[in-house]
Structure formats: structure tokens, C-alpha cells
């Protein structure tokens, strides 16, 4: 997978089992234990939602659950922080449009 660090002088990455999930119906490969946002960045996907008022693309900003820039629709639930949600096999992830639909 592109966007992944292969060799590092200090760290050894013990990546989890490979899993597949869907981003806008496109199959994405990821590793168990990583967040949806991290897996998407690794696959070169930066636009995570479009904003409510001006329809601008928004992406990951803080990656630690504080800024709410990375809200996505995950398994039909809108406004989920994709930086705090771990990938799961078969998960369906979508870009959030505006504020998301109330179910």
C-alpha cells in the first residue's frame, strides 16, 4: 500500500492483520488497529467531508479526536470522528455531506 513507511531508523511498526473496508464503495486495504482516517491518508484520500455552508472539502487536522474536522459517515452513522474510529472488516465509510442526515 502506498503512503506507508517501510523502514524506520527508530520504530518498528507491528501492524495488525490486513482488513478491507469500503470508502465510497471503493475497497480499501488497511491494518487492524489503525483508524479510518489513518488508513485513508495511507491510501492518498484526503477529502473526508464537504462542509455544511460553503461546501468546501475538509480533511484530517488534529488526528487525536479534538478538532472534529474529520467527521464522516461510518456504517450509516453521520458525524463520527474518523480519527478515533478503528477500521473494521467490511465497514462502509462515506464522505459526509453537510451535517449528515438524521436517521
Amino acid at each position: 500500500m502506498e503512503g506507508r513507511i517501510k523502514a524506520h531508523p527508530i520504530l518498528e511498526f507491528r501492524r495488525g492483520k490486513r482488513v478491507k473496508f469500503y470508502f465510497e464503495d471503493r475497497e480499501i486495504e488497511a491494518y487492524e488497529g489503525e483508524t479510518v482516517a489513518a488508513a485513508l491518508q495511507a491510501n492518498g484520500i484526503r477529502v473526508l467531508r464537504y462542509t455544511p455552508h460553503t461546501n468546501r472539502p475538509a480533511g484530517l487536522f488534529c488526528a487525536v479526536g479534538k478538532c472534529s474536522s474529520c467527521l464522516m459517515e461510518i456504517d450509516n452513522v453521520p458525524n463520527v470522528r474518523s480519527c478515533m474510529t478503528k477500521v473494521k472488516e467490511g465497514m462502509h465509510v462515506r464522505r459526509q455531506n453537510k451535517r449528515g442526515d438524521v436517521l
Binding site: 503512503g3 506507508r4 520504530l11 511498526f13 501492524r15 489503525e34 483508524t35 491518508q41 487536522f61 488526528a63
Partner: peptide, 13 residues
């Protein structure tokens, strides 16, 4: 965020 991606997940954004 970039530190998290690189050093926790081994992802280079």
C-alpha cells in the same frame, strides 16, 4: 496529527 500518522500508524501523509 502528522506525528500520530507517522509514528503511531506508520503512515506518511
Amino acid at each position: 496529527a502528522v506525528q500520530t500518522l507517522m509514528n503511531e500508524y506508520g503512515v506518511m501523509p
